[in-house]
Structure formats: C-alpha cells, structure tokens
Amino acid sequence: MIKMTLFLILLFSDSHAKTFYQDHARGWHWYEKLPIPEEPKPQEKDRKKPLTPGEKMKAYREELENRLAQAWINPTSQNVSRYQEMQQDMMNRSQTFSQTWMKNVFSNAGLDHTLIAPVNQKAVHVYLDQQKEEKQQVIQSLSQSHGLFFFYASNCSYCHQFAPIVKFFADQYGWEVLAISLDGGPIDLFPNAVPDNGLASQWNVTALPSLFAVNPEKEDVIQVAQGMTSIDEMENRIMVLTRGNK
C-alpha cells in the first residue's frame, strides 16, 4: 500500500514537472488567468445612421422651439439664457450664410438678379424703358390674333368714362373693338355698337363696364377689365393673361 502511494506521488510529481519543463514559457498552467471574453460587437442594424442635413435642421429648429417654450412657461434666468444663446447662434449662422450668398452673387454674374432687374436709379430707368418697349411690341403683335369685346350700358356713367380709354388703347395698338350694349342704347366713340344677344350671360358679365380679349381662332376668352381701369393695368393684364396663348 505504501509502495503504491509513493508510486502515485512520484507519477504525479513527474507529470507536472514534465509539463512545467516542456512548457516553461507559460509557467504553471493552473495559475494562468482566464481570457476575458470580448463584448459582442453591435449588429449593423443597431448602429445609428448619421443624420441628414434636413434632419439636423429639423432637430435644431425643434430644440430652439423647446427652449423658447421652456423660457416662456418658466422664465427663469437660466431658461431665458439658454434660449438667448441658441438664438444668437442661429443669428450668427444666418449672417454667415448671408455673407456667403452675397459673395457667390458678386463672383457669379449668372446669380446676380440686379443684372436683370437693376436697382441703380439710372439703370432702373433704362430697364423700365426697355420693358415698356417690349410690352408695347408684344401687345401690338397680339392685335393680329386678338380683338376686344367691350360690354356697356347706355345709362352707365362709368361705361361712358371708360369708353375713351378703350378707344385710346385700341388706336395705339391697332386692336379692333366690338362694343356690345346690354340695354340697346348707344355710346360715344363706338357708333357701330351692337345689342347683346346673350353673350354677356354666357361669359358671366356681372359688372359694367367689362372688357374681354378674344382670340376667335382658338376661342380663347380672357377678361381684361371689370369696372374702370387704366391703360397701364390693361396692358399688364393682357401681357399676363395672354402669355403662352398667342
């Protein structure tokens, strides 16, 4: 029994001694620290995507509104200061944006709107003269495809006051005018006026005087005036309403 015990002790000692000498670089293996397991890396889907510029701007506005609301509901010095600080930051950003905008305009003629619509006083006069000349040419050319239908009543004082304006416009631009009387009575300057045959109701004439620009070929009917108006207003309305309908 003693021999067996000694044999086991020697066997055990020899086994560990051999392990130590064969792998002496590691030392006693039962004394080694166990490796710390690495934390699992977050899954790709768990990672937050960076905010887009639009999302950042939205978040900025929301934070500014929240600070304002907090300062208004509970106007402590701290709450008001937090809002003032962010508002100042917003103003600084706006100023930087504005300065960069102007630098781009000054360095790129294609972005300078003042070259199209100048603000210099002398340049403005030249620009307005050019605009007026172009407008007159366009309205003159429209006389080839359009005519004016002038609705009036002989007992309408506004109609009699408006008739010379219509006549002057027609003579200046070469437009033909068909005067239509709703009560069958005459009007100065338009001796060839005709009585209404139901056209006023069809075109929903509800106020006098009324003036329409008509393109018979395309059957385009555009109301130019309802009530008295000036020649300038007539010109502008015809330019806008007939654009693309020539």
Rank of each mutant, 00 (worst) to 15 (best):
A163K: 09
T19A: 08
T114L: 02
V138T: 09
R243S: 04
K58Q: 13
I9S: 09
I222N: 03
H146S: 06
Q95P: 03
Q78E: 07
F162D: 02
W175S: 01
A170S: 08
K33R: 07
F20H: 07
F12G: 12
M234T: 02
N236P: 00
S145E: 08
H24A: 05
T19S: 05
P216W: 00
V177C: 03
L10Y: 13
Q130A: 10
L128D: 05
S94G: 03
Q121F: 06
S81L: 14
Y83H: 11
V224T: 00
M90G: 12
Q226H: 01
F151I: 10
V194M: 09
Y152H: 13
N108W: 00
E217S: 04
L10V: 14
R93Y: 08
D183A: 09
F97L: 12
N66R: 15
N108L: 00
Q43V: 11
L6M: 06
M4T: 06
Y152C: 10
T52I: 15
E217Q: 06
S210M: 08
Q202K: 12
L189I: 12
Y21N: 04
L211G: 00
Y173W: 04
A153K: 14
I36K: 15
E63G: 11
T100I: 08
V214H: 01
L241A: 00
T114H: 04
M1A: 04
K3C: 06
R93P: 04
A109R: 07
R47K: 14
S77I: 14
I2L: 09
Q70P: 07
N108F: 00
Q226T: 02
F106E: 11
F151Y: 13
I187P: 09
W101S: 01
S143R: 07
Q99G: 02
Q99L: 04
F149L: 05
F169W: 02
V105Y: 02
T19M: 08
